[in-house]
Amino acid sequence: MSGRFVVVPAAYVFLLREGAAGTEVLLQLRRHTGYMDDHWAAAAAGHVERGETAFDAAAREAVEEIDVHDVDLAFVTAMQRTRHADPIDERIDFFFTARSWRGEPRIMEPAKCAELRWCPLVDLPDPVVPHELVVLRSLSGPPLPAYSTFGF
């Protein structure tokens, strides 16, 4: 291997619905993953597999992690992020929202997820995974451009 910069692609899905306090997002409380445990995060997210599009990965993760199908995905941003040579953060993250799907979201990986919760976008729990918080804030405020960065 030549020491070239390696980028790990991931796809994230924020399910949205209208609630009493306005738009709500479904978040999961991460547990026993080894990364950002005890932080709130997208209810469904994961790596893009070889030969898979980010769009297909987002739909697959929604089924695998929260048992929802036919997710009507809307692209939000592609975020390139780093923590200056920390390999875990040499990433390109593709963020999607969905306002319709089939099925009732439920925890499918209880070893990695302690809780699912609908949260008002204007009153998010603490702490939220930092780069995901940037995207969540853009859903109720100034939108992010199609390409965004974090950590540079």
Rank of each mutant, 00 (worst) to 15 (best):
P110L: 07
G34Q: 02
T33S: 11
A42P: 12
A62C: 15
L15I: 04
P110E: 11
A114S: 15
S140W: 02
A59C: 06
E24C: 04
F150Y: 11
D93W: 03
S138Q: 06
D126V: 10
A58F: 01
P145G: 14
D67R: 12
G34M: 08
F150W: 13
D86T: 14
A59F: 00
R117N: 01
D93A: 11
V135L: 10
D56Q: 15
S140V: 07
A21M: 01
Y35V: 06
V134P: 09
T149W: 00
V8G: 02
L29N: 06
P125W: 01
T82D: 12
R137L: 14
E52Q: 15
I66P: 02
P105T: 00
E52S: 12
P9T: 10
T149M: 02
A85R: 12
G22Q: 01
P9Y: 00
V8D: 08
L27Y: 01
P9M: 04
D56S: 15
A58S: 10
E65H: 14
A43S: 15
A59W: 01
A21C: 03
G103I: 05
R137F: 04
E64Q: 10
L116M: 12
R50P: 07
L133N: 12
L136H: 04
G51Y: 07
F55P: 04
H69F: 10
A78F: 06
F150K: 11
R91W: 00
V48M: 15
E52K: 14
A10L: 06
A41D: 07
F94V: 07
